[in-house]
Structures are given as C-alpha cells and as structure tokens.
C-alpha cells in the first residue's frame, strides 16, 4: 500500500483543467447531465403551457402580470428540477436489487466546493425570485397611486353568503359586478359578519373582507367578457354558494346598465 502511495506522489498532479475534463467525461456525469437537460426541457415546456392552458382568460393588468410571473418562475425553477431529477434518475437507474446489501460506495463525506457553489447558486436564485417579486409589488403600488385619482370606486360587501356591490358615484347597489373596460377601479371591501375573501377570478386580485375594517384592492379590466366573483375564505354553511358573476362592458354599455338600475352616470 505504502509503495503504491509513493508512486502516486511522484506523478505530477493533474492541472485543474485536466481534472474538469476528466470529470466531464465520466459516465455518471454524462448520464446525469443528459437526464438533467431532459428534465429541464420538460419543465420549460410545462411552464410555457400549464398556466396559460388552465388559468382563466386574462382580463386585467394584474392577471396578466400574475400569469407572466408564474410562467417565468417555472422557467427559473426548471434547471433546479433538472439537476435534482437528473441526479436522482441516474442513481435510480444504477440501483441494486436483491436481498443482500450492495458493496459500499465511495466514502465521500463532503465536497466543500460543491456545497459552497450549491449554496451560492441557490441563494442567487432565491434573490432573483425575491427581486422579481418586489419589483412586481412596486409596479403594483405605483399603478395604484397613479390611478387613484381617476379610479372608479366600488364598495364590496361580503355577507354570509352573498356578495353585494355599491357604486357610490353612480348611486346604485347590485349583486352583480359590472365594470367598464380600461377604467381603473378601486374595490373597498368590507364584511357585514365573518371573514370572507373577495376574489374576482379573471381580474387576478384578491383581498379579505373583514368586519368594520375596509381593505382595498385595485385593478384595471382590459378585456370584455364575463367574470366570476368567488369567496376564497371558508365562511360557514353556504361558503361554496357565495359566488356571483359580472361583466366587463364598454363604457357606453356600462352607462346604460347604470341608468337601467336607476343610477346616474358619474
């Protein structure tokens, strides 16, 4: 053994470049890499298609941002999934079966560069996600500030188990949420009893309704069509039936509707 050790010492140590090349040529590395690429692609395709396919029609600025963000996050996480599933699958393919344990593997207790790189890369990805989210948040609140003056106000009340909508400027109150297109809108949300959560699904915003505590959420509808309004907070017996509908209308249609309801055009 000791003489063998001597021989090794006498050979010149490989340069870092050589070591990288030897590493990359190893069968296990190639296998994992190919599998990793495969899984990354699977998740990229999934990211491209899953949310656009299943999420409802984008009908507001917020919904557009939400969906774009979910697709982007799937792209970012695709390589992570690739690494994890690539390595896992390669080891799974090299599995040992039978009733006796396999031979011992190499005694790798740790590999400091790998741990450090892993830590740094995952921190950077978390940082990317954080920054992205914060920027989106900021865009949202800036939009809110700039739209505040021109926005239409709708006072939303959640009652066990019906939503109602009051349009103070128009002087009407209804059980359907109709809104004019391209008009920024502010929802002042309140509950007459327990907690509810106001969720106009296609508009991609949501906020809880609390007793005596107005919560605010805003958006701008960008597409004509029907919307669903749901309650996203369990509120007792008929929580499931606490839903209603509405329409995003042209300004003219909206004004006609307001007049028909006995209100006045603001």
């Amino acid at each position: 053994m000791s003489s063998h050790d001597h021989e090794v010492e006498e050979v010149l140590p490989p340069t870092p470049g050589d070591r990288v090349i030897t590493f990359l040529k190893r069968k296990d590395v190639v296998q994992s890499f190919v599998l990793g690429i495969f899984f990354t692609l699977v998740f990229v395709i999934l990211g491209r298609d899953f949310y656009p396919k299943w999420m409802p029609t984008i009908m507001s600025t917020d919904m557009k941002a939400n969906e774009a963000l979910m697709v982007a996050f799937t792209y970012i996480s695709a390589p992570v999934c690739g690494v994890v599933l690539g390595i896992a699958t390669y080891t799974f393919l090299n599995r040992h079966t039978g009733d006796t344990p396999p031979e011992d593997g190499p005694a790798i207790r740790t590999n400091t560069p790998v741990v450090v790189v892993w830590g740094i890369v995952s921190s950077l990805m978390a940082l990317l996600a954080i920054i992205w989210g914060l920027v989106e948040l900021n865009v949202g609140s800036e939009a809110a500030a700039s739209e505040a003056r021109t926005a239409m106000v709708v006072e939303v009340t959640g009652s066990q188990w019906v939503w109602t909508f009051k349009y103070p400027a128009q002087g009407i109150e209804t059980h359907e949420l109709n809104l004019p297109i391209d008009q920024p809108v502010i929802f002042d949300v309140i509950s007459s009893d327990v907690n509810h959560s106001f969720w106009p699904v296609q508009l991609g915003v949501k906020v809880d309704a609390n007793r005596l505590q107005t919560t605010v959420v805003h958006t701008t509808p960008t597409k004509l069509g029907a919307i669903d309004v749901k309650c996203a907070e369990l509120c007792g017996l008929y929580h499931a039936y606490m839903e209603t509908t509405g329409q995003i209308m042209t300004a003219a249609d909206f004004n006609n509707w307001v007049t028909a309801q006995g209100g006045h055009v603001a």
Partner: peptide
C-alpha cells in the same frame, strides 16, 4: 346586518 337585503330584487 346589511341594508341591501331590505330591497326587493
């Protein structure tokens, strides 16, 4: 609790 329900709708 909520005056809306005083209306006939």
């Amino acid at each position: 609790n909520h005056a809306y329900f005083g209306k006939v709708v």
